[in-house]
Design a binder for these strands. Sequence first.
DNA 1: GCTTGTTTTCAATTATTCTTGAAAGTTTCG
DNA 2: CGAAACTTTCAAGAATAATTGAAAACAAGC
Lengths: 171, 171
Amino acid sequence: MQLAEAKARFIADWGRFGTNWGINRTMAQIHALLLISPDPLSADAVMEELAISRGNANMNLRELIDWGLVRKVLIPGERKEFFSAEKDIWRVARQIVKERKKRELDVMIPVLQELSDVEGDKKDKHVKTFTDTINNIRKFSEQADKTLDTMIKADEHWFFGSLVKLFAGKS
Amino acid sequence: MQLAEAKARFIADWGRFGTNWGINRTMAQIHALLLISPDPLSADAVMEELAISRGNANMNLRELIDWGLVRKVLIPGERKEFFSAEKDIWRVARQIVKERKKRELDVMIPVLQELSDVEGDKKDKHVKTFTDTINNIRKFSEQADKTLDTMIKADEHWFFGSLVKLFAGKS
DNA sequence: GCTTGTTTTCAATTATTCTTGAAAGTTTCG
DNA sequence: CGAAACTTTCAAGAATAATTGAAAACAAGC
């Protein structure tokens, strides 16, 4: 396969993959493009490669920066801004885990906490099933929270090793 | 908080949570409703509780069944079908991991395989960066594949324990 | 402080995804 | 078999999310 075709397929597939995980297609595609670009790209280059508008490029690049997956790079003598993606795939994964945890798990846990103390007769099976379910989800979430924290803190090559340490005391 | 309010909040939040992960709101809400219902519910009950149409209820219940999170239950003397969700949250998580792996990782790996051998000069930095990136993603995916397989096979209470065994040999 | 190049914003538009509801299909039972 | 109860399908419509493009804001250099 030629590079141009392979690039196009990778970008398309990565975009489709992203949409399955609640990430907008363009954001995932820009990420894909930057992952395979040896040098930083300008917003114009991104717009041209993906055939998207300036506003769209700008918005999704900013979002990628918010996620910690892309950073602005200044190139001496150039007035434009350039963008470059973190290439180390372990760091990319860790960063995504970190952000998702922050945006979702850390938000969900207090809510579950609150929901876990409904008023009412504990003998009522509706009350009982509700509180049991919420408490189980809460416990699960708290365990996941700890696990993910350790993963996030772990040094990239000790990523797996640290999981061992984490769980060694639990089983 | 009263049960009715807590139920409503849980359903709404679970729905919002689902949409962040590429799952449609209604499907997540039906799942939430069934998780906190002590007894199986009929399609009509689901329609009424969530104020959704028959078609919508039917479609999303089927989808939940496809995901292995809900099953049809026959109640003696009743002609209607009833639906019940798996309540054990560990099994729920494992089932979701299993399905997502099947639908996405198992599809992605062969694609990465194919993309990893582009024609062209390996000295060309565009070719090199492309193949390096694809290969790194591929290696990462294969590692994830193995890890998830072990998690999926693991008995619920040995879920974490088995992770220890898995990684013990790798670090 | 003006001009030019560049980035950001955001209301309007477009694309995508979800939902409805009625018709067709299926099952059960007298 | 035929009617009643229930489930499934799917085209049309509604809701949601993404994208555009032009105007505003900003920055650099003269």
